[in-house]
């Protein structure tokens, strides 16, 4: 075996086909950027009143349930992300779960409440940081004498065997994928639900 990762799906996705997965993450990032650019230029700042709208406070039962359930979703997201090379899961699924927890906040209060916790600027910074982590690990293994994304070279700076170095590097790139996916999923929802105005939401 080249790697100590028990979950073969993750080993193929993040290691053998690491180049493919990296640019999949870039595709997600570009999709988010494109949506931002399109809706920013086409959105009018004036608010259109929609037919289904009513003036109401956020529902007490809904908000209190969400208050209880969001921390559980986020801890589960971290578990899926960190345990992705042992059991099913990984960066993509963990990131989507993390993004979904912020979408849940936006659905049960309103968009402003969710954007106060995870603003759009921070979203795009985190998304870019995710790709930076992924490419950084690839470039680091290049700088150590291997090829791009050849994680085994990392055993020169980590106190582990080459197989375990691939194991840890896979966790690293999964974290990068998770960052990008979580931020972009929330940015997509925030822009689409408000038509690019980033106010009021649904």
């Amino acid at each position: 075996m080249d790697t100590e990762v028990p979950n073969m799906v993750t080993a193929v996705l993040a290691d053998y086909r690491g180049f493919d997965t990296m640019f999949e993450t870039v595709v997600v990032f570009i999709a988010g950027l494109a949506l931002l650019a399109i809706l920013k230029s086409s959105s009018s700042s004036k608010r259109i009143k929609r037919e289904h709208e009513v003036e109401a406070e956020p529902d007490l039962i809904v908000t209190n349930t969400v208050r209880l359930i969001v921390p559980v979703i986020q801890i589960f997201a971290f578990y899926v992300l960190a345990h992705g090379h042992v059991s099913p899961g990984g960066g993509f699924q963990g990131g989507v779960l993390m993004g979904a927890s912020f979408i849940l906040v936006a659905l049960s209060w309103d968009l402003d409440e969710a954007l106060a916790r995870f603003s759009l600027n921070r979203c795009m910074t985190v998304a870019a940081l995710g790709i930076f982590i992924y490419a950084g690990i690839g470039l680091l293994s290049m700088a150590l004498g291997g090829e791009f994304l050849d994680y085994a070279e990392l055993h020169k700076i980590l106190p582990v065997s080459p197989e375990m170095a691939r194991y840890h590097a896979m966790l690293g790139v999964e974290i990068g994928v998770g960052f990008t996916v979580a931020a972009i999923m929330f940015a997509l929802y925030a822009n689409l639900s408000s038509g690019g105005r980033l106010r009021d939401g649904l």
Binding site: N7, V9, T10, V80, P88, G89, G90, F92, Q93, V96, L97, G99, A100, I103, L107, M185, L188, Y189, L192, S193, L202
Partner: peptide
């Protein structure tokens, strides 16, 4: 793994985004 991705992305996020 595929089932997990389908449950989170297909049944979860994409439905929410389409409704939005």
């Amino acid at each position: 793994d595929v089932a997990f991705t389908e449950a989170t992305v297909g049944a979860g996020i994409s439905t929410v985004i389409m409704v939005a």
